[in-house]
Amino acid sequence: MSEATAPKVFIAGKPVEGVHEVHEHVSPISSYVKVFGALLVLTALTYGVSYMDLGNASLPVAMIVAFAKASLVCMYFMHLKYDDRYNVFVFISTILFVAIFFTFTIFDLMQRDAVNPEQDTFFRANFGEAFGFQPPEPPEGAEAGGHGHE
């Protein structure tokens, strides 16, 4: 076997000669500086936007900015843009499974009273009476010992 002497790199189990490993990519400093600048601008943006009253749009806007920042960090600081494609696949599928987790759970908890309204009230509406949890009233705010449930 000829590969006994030469260093071996395996792709799909087959020895391959002369492969230039992608992880050796060296980005120029200027590109890091640009990304850093963009991250600072986006941080200022999300901070500034929080003072405007966007109503229901504020959460999506904040999330879009956060995702933009996260993608910059992943692609340039974490070199995902130049990395082995399987590492990218690992990362993206992680996000996908987080999405599955979120979607089903939030969907269920939002739909709980869709068919039978009582089903929901049991869990959420009647905490005070049903489970004995009583936050103090505003005027008697300084009641000693804190919680009513204890």
Binding site: F97, I100, F101, F104, F107, D108, L109, M110, Q111, R112, D113, A114, V115, N116, Q119, F122, F123
Partner: peptide, 18 residues
């Protein structure tokens, strides 16, 4: 296997639709 966990919760107050 990641899409089916709710079948453990049919009678525990999960929404009917889920």
């Amino acid at each position: 296997s990641f899409l089916v966990w709710g079948h453990h919760m049919f009678v525990s107050g999960q929404s009917e639709l889920a």
